[in-house]
């Protein structure tokens, strides 16, 4: 083990010798056998704090969890229909002397009987990674689930169609997905999220800014208390329950989707709204047209938050909650 740790001081290690391969071995002939291999290893440069940990797994799920330790522990579980296909699945770990660590899974090329062709659905690699809380996370999945919890230095997350789930994270968070949904709970810091078809959900987000954009997906926010909030959609609906901050802003804009904004708290707000459809302001339906803003002011005058709600072609509703 010490040899391996020393090696990590400079280099890349391919997946450590499997901790144990157990399986149906796939030799039972009916073709639905599954071989599972589980390996646990540590990544990182000994004696150096982990700065950035970048995990790229296009073959399955990634679960990243911060803890009060200093080492990075990786549990990799590979699934394949048979031992030969299993050999095509690799986990590579690269530790740089600057403290950054990169984990990558890859599916190697076919190679005859030794590494036969295999269906994408039949192979997967799931990574569970325990990281020091102070590490900055970069995570990428394709169809798998990307989950990040309990870290303090932000995260940069990408997914194609898999869901992104973020819980109890501080620092600057970026997230992008094509069709994958994104869910954020207890984020303390700036958050920037973009999805094309995925839905975005926010619960207890507090930071300098929350920027969320969806093309066709819906956006839902609860307990949003960031200073600058901007939510936009093209065709999805937006439903926001927020606590505006003194001197802050809440801007919610959709092209075709319905917009429903409810605010609570003690800060005064200056609201302007317009919609191609119906506008409901504080419970009262208000006639308007798509090119005319309706303005209203509520509560204390000092440090009012600027609130703007708009749907070019849909309905808009705005309410204050006690």
């Amino acid at each position: 083990m010490t040899a391996r740790r020393a090696l990590a001081a400079v280099v890349s290690i391919a997946l450590a010798a499997p901790a144990g391969a157990w399986a149906d071995d796939g030799t039972d002939g009916d073709g639905d056998g599954v071989v599972v291999e589980r390996a646990e290893f540590q990544a990182g440069v000994v004696g150096r704090p982990v700065g950035v940990i970048a995990i790229d797994n296009s073959l399955g799920d990634v679960r990243i969890e911060g803890y009060d330790g200093t080492t990075v522990t990786v549990i990799a579980v590979k699934h394949a229909p048979d031992a030969a296909s299993l050999r095509r699945l690799r986990v590579e770990s690269l530790a740089n002397p600057d403290g950054s660590v990169r984990l990558t899974t890859l599916l190697t090329d076919r190679g005859g009987a030794e590494r036969p062709a295999v269906a994408l659905a039949a192979v997967r690699v799931d990574l569970t990674v325990k990281v020091p809380r102070a590490a900055t996370i970069s995570g990428r999945v394709t169809t798998g689930r990307l989950e990040v919890a309990n870290v303090d230095a932000g995260a940069d997350l990408d997914s194609s169609t898999g869901p992104i789930v973020v819980r109890n994270v501080a620092g600057v968070v970026f997230a992008r997905s094509l069709a994958g949904s994104q869910r954020f709970e207890e984020v303390f810091g700036s958050l920037d999220s973009h999805a094309v078809d995925g839905d975005l959900a926010f619960d207890s987000v507090r930071g300098a800014a929350l920027t969320a954009r969806a093309y066709a997906g819906d956006i839902a926010g609860r307990g949003v208390a960031s200073k600058q909030v901007r939510l936009t959609s093209i065709s999805g609906s937006i439903d926001l329950e927020a606590e505006p901050q003194a001197g802050g802003s809440v801007t919610v804009t959709s092209l075709r989707g319905a917009v429903d904004v409810r605010l609570r708290g003690t800060v005064g707000v200056a609201v302007r709204a317009r919609a191609g459809g119906r506008v409901t302001l504080a419970g009262a339906a208000t006639p308007t047209t798509a090119d005319r803003w309706i303005e209203a002011r509520y509560g204390a005058r000092r440090d009012r938050a600027a609130v703007q709600v708009e749907s070019r072609f849909g309905d808009v509703s705005f309410a204050l909650m006690q």
């Binding site: 062709a117 994408l120 094509l178 078809d197």
Partner: peptide, 20 residues
């Protein structure tokens, strides 16, 4: 030859490009 996971993944990438 038999379709392989790598081909399927390339298809997924093309699909993603198509949607974007």
């Amino acid at each position: 030859a038999l379709r392989d996971a790598l081909d399927e993944r390339a298809d997924l990438e093309r699909e993603a490009d198509g949607r974007f």
